[in-house]
Amino acid sequence: MKTALIINDDKDTLDILGYIINDMGHNCINSQSLLPISEIIELAADIILFDHYTNLQTPGNLCFQIKSDPLLSHVPVILFSAHLNIANIAKNSLADAYLAKPFDIDDLTNLVNSLLQ
């Protein structure tokens, strides 16, 4: 069983994503705010999903820090957003993948499964 860290400031979206990940057979750690790198390391998640906008901050910089940290660089990161430029945002922040909102649940589950293999 794998563990997913989901960061999203909208509680309803966070709950729905957590339900989907749990339904896939994985553990879920939910956070409504961005976390410091030290805490992310301690959580030892197998995959991280960020909303591009969280608490009026953009997690692209945190994503870049995660992908640049030797203890975390192997952890896949998925950015999701309704931002029209999410593909470039994900690329520039070194995210492994992105989902444009609104996204299909099957697209989410297929992406998570492919990144966790």
Rank of each mutant, 00 (worst) to 15 (best):
P70E: 02
L94T: 03
H74R: 15
K2T: 06
H52S: 12
S93R: 01
T13A: 12
L116I: 12
V112A: 05
L72S: 03
G18Q: 00
V75Q: 09
A44N: 03
E42T: 04
T58L: 08
H74M: 10
N85T: 12
Y98A: 00
L14I: 08
P102M: 13
K101C: 10
L49G: 05
I78F: 07
F50R: 02
I48S: 05
T13S: 13
T58C: 09
A4Y: 01
N27F: 05
I78M: 13
I89P: 00
A4I: 04
D69R: 02
K67M: 08
F103S: 10
L84D: 10
P76S: 05
C28E: 02
N22T: 09
K67I: 01
N85P: 11
N27S: 03
T3N: 09
D106L: 14
I40W: 02
Y53N: 15
D96E: 03
K91A: 06
E42K: 09
F80G: 10
I20Q: 08
S68N: 14
L111V: 04
D69M: 04
S31N: 08
L62T: 05
Y98P: 06
G18V: 06
N27L: 03
S31L: 11
G25M: 00
N113T: 13
H74D: 13
A95N: 03
A4R: 11
H26K: 07
I86H: 12
Q57A: 06
P70D: 05
T13Q: 13
P76Y: 05
I41H: 05
I29Q: 02
V75S: 10
M24R: 11
Q117K: 13
L115D: 02
T109I: 14
I7M: 12
L108W: 12
C28R: 00
I37K: 07
A100E: 12
A87Y: 13
T109R: 08
S38K: 11
D51T: 11
L116G: 11
K11F: 09
N8E: 15
D46W: 07
N8A: 14
